[in-house]
Design a binder for these strands. Structure first.
Lengths: 149, 149
DNA sequence: ACGTTATAGTTTCACTTGTAACCAATTGCA
DNA sequence: TGCAATTGGTTACAAGTGAAACTATAACGT
């Protein structure tokens, strides 16, 4: 297989391929945050995401957590189960619809939230520090477009 | 828990949190490409990545595949095993170092590559079509900075 | 030359994840 | 009212994944 033959097949150059670059960046960033709270609190990324949602929207059902996140319902169900088990989330039953749960962070849950949230924000700041103000704004607006439905 | 109390805890707003947005975007994009080739060729994302690397750099070892990708060696080992098994990759042994494998796409492997690569590129184009020329350039330069080391 | 250390790659085991099937409660409507 | 369809949530099973142990070969230092 000569170089000419390879070129004829027009192989992808991963390092210039947008989906690949996004994937590397996203994994690097998420993983660097996740390792911190995983080590310190034995908290999976899914669990942490559920916690952030319950922090903003207390007293919602698992279904609503699913709707507000990009997670699927099995993942949420399992994360909630672990969180309830660990005493980090209180689960009640909805008045008038016994299928629905009513979820909120417990005291212990809030305590963890209040430690992890600043840590996550610090990572975000650190990342953004590589860009100037203009680039930060551009990135946001570009992501808005790429994420639109 | 009143709204005021919630605010006091300063919960993260996931939809404005950069690592989260990156993660959603990256998963959406990679997944939409992956489902296509998974359905059509029973090819996992890891296998496809190995194939793209072998397309550009034929006759390299598994170790070099690891170095050139962000995958870990176990994942590569398994992907290569499946690819060899499916007759999509030929595996030889390095002259002078019997530990090293020498990998390259087989005819069948190239045939698949030549179908999937344009498909992946089409997805990338489709994504980039939401941005104008300037934004595309900005995104590239921003990703360069964020991905540096 | 010989034992130690390092490297390439595979295997094993425990854990996570995704899909589909499932159960129970609720809704819709004939 | 009663029964089919829908919805919230969990469970079961198969497949995928990661960390560590393992095998075989090679490199290094004395």
């Amino acid at each position: 297989m000569t170089p000419e033959t390879v070129a004829a097949h027009a192989p992808l150059e991963l390092e210039h391929f947008l989906p690949y670059r996004l994937s590397i960046l996203s994994n690097t960033v998420s993983q660097s945050i996740a390792t911190e709270y995983q080590d310190r609190f034995e908290l999976s990324m899914t669990e942490w995401r559920v916690m952030t949602i319950l922090a903003r929207f207390p007293e919602i059902s698992a279904r609503e957590v699913v709707d507000r996140s990009a997670m699927d319902k099995v993942a949420v169900s399992r994360a909630v189960a672990r969180l309830v088990n660990a005493g980090r989330v209180d689960r009640g039953i909805h008045d008038g619809d016994k299928r629905r749960s009513v979820l909120k962070l417990s005291e212990a849950g809030w305590a963890i939230h209040d430690e992890v949230a600043p840590l996550a924000r610090a990572h975000e700041r650190e990342l953004l520090a590589r860009l100037d103000q203009g680039e930060q704004a551009q990135l946001n607006s570009i992501l808005d477009k790429l994420l639109a439905t």
